[in-house]
Simulated scan of single mutants.
Amino acid sequence: MKRNALHAAIGALLLVPALAMADDKMKKMDTNGDGSVSAAEHTAGATKMFGEMDANGDGSVTAAEMDAHKAKMKGDKAKGGREMSSAEKIRAIDTNGDGALSAAEHSAGAQKKFGEMDANGDGNLTAAEMKAGHEAMKTTKDR
C-alpha cells in the first residue's frame, strides 16, 4: 500500500498537469516529433520542469514553489478530489527528508516513473502509456 502511494506520488509530481493535459505534455516532450517520448526526452522534460519550479534558483523545490508552478500552468482551475498535495508528492521522493526536492531526487524520481510507465519496455513512451500513467497515479491515490 505504501509502495502504491509512493508510485502515485512520483507520477503526480513528475507528470503534472494531470490527465486532461497528457496529450499536450506528450507534444511538448516529444522534441523530435516521432510520436513517442524517449528516456532522453523525458529526462530533458523533467529537468526543464525542475528548473521552472525552482523559482528562487536555490537548487531545491519546496511545496510552495510546486504549488505556484502548478497554478501558473493550470490557472485557478478547481483541484480534482483525488489529486495529491505538493507536500505529499515531495514527501514520497524526498530521500533525505528535508521537505524539499533536490535536482538529484527529482531526476531519480523521473527515471523511476519513466520505467514504470514504459509498459512494453521499448525505452519510449507512447501517448497511451503516458495517459495510462496519469490514470494509474490518480486511481492509486484513492486506494
Rank of each mutant, 00 (worst) to 15 (best):
E65I: 04
A108Q: 10
M49D: 12
A64C: 05
V37M: 04
G115D: 06
A108G: 05
V16R: 11
N56I: 05
S85P: 01
A40D: 10
N4Y: 06
D30Q: 13
K72T: 08
M29Y: 10
V16W: 01
G81S: 12
M130F: 10
K138Y: 09
S85V: 04
A40V: 06
N124D: 04
I90L: 01
T47N: 12
E88C: 09
L15C: 14
T126G: 13
K28Q: 13
L125K: 07
I10C: 00
A8C: 05
A136D: 13
G11C: 06
G45E: 02
A119K: 15
G115K: 09
D34R: 07
M73E: 10
E88P: 07
D122R: 00
E105D: 10
T140H: 09
R91S: 15
G35D: 04
G115W: 03
L15G: 14
R143E: 11
A12Q: 14
S60L: 02
G59I: 00
K70A: 14
H134A: 11
A100G: 01
D98Q: 06
I10G: 10
K74G: 02
R82S: 11
K141N: 12
A103D: 02
M130V: 15
G99N: 07
A64Q: 15
T31S: 09
T31F: 00
A63W: 03
T31N: 00
M49E: 13
A63S: 13
G75L: 09
T139Y: 05
D94T: 07
R143F: 09
H69R: 12
R91G: 12
R82K: 08
K2W: 01
A55H: 04
T140S: 10
A39S: 13
L125R: 06
M21W: 07
G75I: 08
A136F: 03
E83I: 10
A100W: 01
L14V: 11
N56K: 07
G80V: 00
I10D: 02
A110Q: 02
E41N: 01
A119D: 08
L101Q: 05
A103T: 06
E65F: 04
T31E: 05
S107C: 01
A63P: 03
K48E: 15
H106Y: 15
M73S: 09
G33F: 13
L14M: 12
T43E: 10
M66I: 00
H42T: 01
K89V: 05
L19R: 11
G97F: 09
D94W: 08
S86D: 13
A20M: 00
A40F: 01
A5W: 00
K77Y: 07
M73W: 01
L15A: 13
S86Q: 13
A63H: 06
K74S: 13
G97D: 07
N120P: 10
A127E: 08
V61I: 11
G97K: 11
T139H: 03
K113E: 06
G57I: 07
E105M: 08
G97M: 08
G80Q: 09
L6M: 09
M49K: 15
G133W: 04
N56C: 05
